[in-house]
Amino acid sequence: MKRTLLCLVAGFAPLLAHAGCEDNFEKWTQQLHPGRTLDTEHATCKVWPANEALTIAALPLPQKGNEDDHGTDDLEVLVADTASGTVIAHQFQKAAIQYDAVRFSGLALDTARYQLTPQNRAFGVRVMHESSSRVNPFGQTALSLYVIDGQSLRTVLDRLIVEDSGGEWDGNCAGTFSNTTRALDLGAAGNDAYATLRIREKSVQTVNTPTKDDCASKEATGKRTNAVLEYRNGKYAVPKGMQYSD
């Protein structure tokens, strides 16, 4: 089976909500969670390019007692009929998003060509966190993949960290920064006819050093790490150290 490259890092760009689908945010929230408040700033939706009759959405629902700088959000991920807005399948994840010293900064829908089997095409939800510290910057993006399973959505890949960056510097020049990105390829069909997922990891470390008249920057690329994820027991197991944890 010919490998299909999924440009999840270099070719990935933020996906804008489809005009009009956000009009269903309140309808979906009150239908599935009557009385709950939706974080409309971070909620997102778009028509699924693989099947424009369907619209996908990710709705963060703040729990009671949340503060601006710390709290917990539940997450509703759903697929709806594009024409009517009727929910076709969904999954509710309690306490899916937590933030304290590192804040929750956004959601993005990932509709790359995740054709896991001839019958099952997945879509992704990316959850992004970042720190507010200027001298100790930090950011992480985690990707989960879902397939439609009857009236439910089934998670087949759970919170794979696809971008991880951090650093420490003096606020002027001197400092060290690191950035790790991961991309996915589809491999040959394996267990239950599901394609294997091949992870390609790239790490770059940057060191800034003050000079007489400037700030010199030197990059070093770390050893590339590859991993192969096999589909077993209904999901792809994410290796230790590559999975986001709160």
Rank of each mutant, 00 (worst) to 15 (best):
G71W: 00
G71P: 00
G71M: 02
D73M: 10
D73G: 07
V77N: 00
V77M: 03
L78A: 04
L78Y: 02
L78S: 03
V79S: 06
V79Y: 02
V79E: 02
V79T: 05
A80V: 10
A80P: 05
A80H: 05
A80T: 05
D81E: 12
T82A: 12
T82C: 13
T82Y: 10
T82M: 13
T82H: 15
T82N: 15
A83S: 15
S84L: 13
G85M: 14
G85R: 13
G85S: 13
G85W: 12
T86Y: 09
T86N: 15
V87D: 10
I88D: 00
H90F: 01
H90G: 04
F92V: 03
Q93A: 08
Q93P: 02
K94G: 04
K94C: 01
A95C: 10
A95D: 15
A96M: 08
A96C: 07
A96H: 00
A96Q: 05
I97V: 09
I97S: 00
Q98H: 14
Q98P: 06
Y99R: 07
Y99P: 02
D100L: 06
A101I: 12
A101E: 15
V102P: 05
R103H: 13
R103N: 10
F104I: 08
F104C: 07
F104G: 05
F104P: 01
S105K: 12
S105C: 13
S105Q: 14
S105D: 14
G106D: 05
G106C: 04
G106T: 04
L107F: 02
L107T: 03
L107V: 04
L107W: 04
A108E: 13
A108G: 13
A108F: 13
A108D: 15
A108V: 12
L109H: 03
L109D: 02
D110F: 06
T111F: 04
Y114H: 08
Q115E: 11
L116H: 01
T117W: 10
T117K: 11
T117C: 12
T117V: 08
P118Q: 06
Q119K: 14
N120M: 11
R121S: 15
A122M: 09
A122E: 03
A122V: 07
A122N: 03
F123Y: 10
F123I: 07
F123C: 06
G124M: 08
G124Y: 06
R126Y: 07
R126W: 06
R126V: 12
V127I: 14
V127T: 10
V127G: 03
M128V: 01
M128T: 05
H129D: 07
H129A: 05
S131L: 09
S131C: 12
S132H: 13
S132P: 03
S133N: 15
R134T: 09
R134D: 10
P137G: 08
P137L: 10
P137S: 04
